[in-house]
Design a protein around this nucleic acid. Structure first.
Length: 444
RNA sequence: CGGAGCGUAGCGCAGUCUGGUAGCGCACCUGCUUCGGGAGCAGGGGGUCGGAGGUUCGAAUCCUCUCGCUCCGACCA
């Protein structure tokens, strides 16, 4: 993408309404535009990152069935589970022209149960997991922090259906592991913490927290959990013992939110590892058994011929919120530093002397060579001074930058710079392309 | 929803107390010079002051109502 043809309305000054760093940078980097309290338009750069995060979520859902449920739901479905009255003012209630009561979905347990009961009646069709990524609306009393606490937000929510409790708990564990992988691919350390279930219900639930000063939850943890990594290990999601072992590894050390914190247990953590901090919640998994299947009549026939309410769980990832969480976890005083997994463009090309025949040709060559490797660079071809181009690149946070100028070209080299470390090296254009391709070979 | 504050040019702000017909920086446009970390000089365009009503010879400024946004608190992916 050539910057002269790209809609990237960057701001030099901080918008007054933005209080935290991720919100400020998202506005300054031209990623989002607020339309009402907690409701945002996604501009090209922001949308690209949102789509990258979605892509990773999709890829990690592997065999789960991808569906799409509507944003608007009939109120009657929620009357069946009893949540129409329980959910309160946070639920946006609407009437259509026929005076039918509708709501803008804050979550989809009722609807997925309705889909399930219409089509599944036998244990032979289990286990089943269905998920979608859809906009949700929760009419927060106080939206804030940009996309971290918006009213409209994009969420991946999945639902598993199993024949018995053991199978459902395996589904729970499977999702815990897949979520760990998902966050790691985004360059995040998200710690599973024992949590409270809230309006979803159920007795087994973990939240995934990214540690950050600006987090909304107070967290208590043994800091050795932050060193745990899934890495490249092979995992067979059908292997109950292996999946359970990974979960045990990640949930044994103390890690809880204030809702479930137990000071007596926490005191047993060695003092050197005992940490209190704040975290951003980026996902949650639930096992809630037959809460919805019983109230809504979602039953399956077992091998023995009995009808039983299906065992269920649900799992969510705050897709739009993750943009904010990633920025909170990865930035400096110049701007954002995107992890390779979610960056809007893999690399930026800065032409220091637009209009110089050699510089222009070298940039075009790099741009095409990268494209040939499937890497779309953001080429700053504006007639701007070097400082302005560097400032823009630093702000929008592309992890790699290739700087092209007459001075280097005279020696046959361009500069390859890491946004994260600031380290530059002078290499031939061909070598720069090869390096970038190698870096992203393991990422996309 | 309770408490506090703010709406003046695309963005950041001054002017409001002490009414007299709107200003600064950035951005934008033109020209010249500059050109490896948000350039300099000169010239220029743009707002009727969130909205409605009222007081007054006269309202961004005073009064009433209203809409929106932000911050603190209670709730949440």
């Amino acid at each position: 993408m050539r910057l002269t043809r790209y809609f990237l309305p960057v701001l030099k000054e901080n918008p007054a309404e933005a209080q935290i760093v991720s919100h400020r940078y998202m506005l300054r980097a031209g990623m989002i535009k607020q339309q009402a309290a907690g409701i945002y338009s996604w501009l090209p750069l922001g949308l690209r990152v949102l789509r990258r995060i979605e892509a990773i979520v999709h890829e990690e859902q592997e065999r789960a069935g991808h569906i799409l449920m509507p944003t608007l739901q009939p109120a009657d479905l929620w009357r069946e589970s009893g949540r129409y009255d329980d959910y309160g003012q946070e639920m946006l209630r609407i009437k259509d022209r026929q005076e039918r009561e509708m709501l803008y979905g804050p979550t989809n347990e009722e609807m997925i149960t309705d889909i399930f009961r219409a089509h599944v009646t036998s244990y032979k069709d289990l286990p089943l997991t269905l998920y979608h990524i859809q906009w949700k609306f929760r009419d927060e009393m106080r939206p804030r922090f940009g996309v971290m606490r918006g009213r409209e937000f994009l969420m991946k929510d999945g639902y598993n259906f199993d024949v018995d409790r053991d199978a459902a708990l395996h589904a729970y564990n499977r999702h815990m592991v897949s979520y760990l992988r998902t966050y790691e691919r985004m360059g995040l350390t998200a710690i599973p913490m024992r949590a409270a279930s809230g309006p979803i219900g159920g007795d087994n639930t973990h939240e995934f927290l990214v540690l950050a000063q600006t987090g909304e939850s107070e967290v208590f943890y043994d800091d050795r959990v932050t060193a745990l990594k899934l890495g490249q290990r092979e995992i067979d999601y059908d292997d109950r013992a292996q999946v359970a072992e990974v979960c045990r590894e990640f949930t044994t050390l103390y890690a809880r939110t204030d809702e479930t914190h137990d000071q007596a247990v926490f005191d047993q953590v060695p003092e050197a590892h005992r940490k209190v901090g704040r975290g951003i919640e980026v996902g949650q998994i639930f096992y809630f058994g037959t809460k919805y299947s019983e109230s809504m009549g979602a039953e399956v026939t077992t091998a023995e011929g009995h009808k039983v309410p299906v065992e269920m769980g649900s799992h969510g990832i705050g897709v739009s919120r993750l943009l904010g969480a990633i920025i909170e976890a990865s930035h400096d005083d110049k701007g954002i530093i995107w992890p390779e997994g979610v960056t809007p463009f893999p690399v930026g090309i800065v032409n220091l002397k637009q209009g110089d025949a050699a510089a222009d040709a070298a940039c075009e060559g790099l741009y095409k060579a990268l494209a040939a490797k499937g890497l779309e660079a953001l080429y700053d071809d504006r007639d701007e001074r070097a400082g302005a181009k560097f400032a823009t690149m630093d702000l929008i946070g592309l992890p790699w930058r290739i700087t092209v100028g007459p001075r280097g070209l005279a020696n046959g080299v361009v500069e390859l710079t890491s946004r994260r470390t600031g380290v530059s090296e002078e290499v031939s254009p061909e070598a720069a392309v090869a390096r970038i391709a190698a870096i992203y070979a393991g990422v996309r």
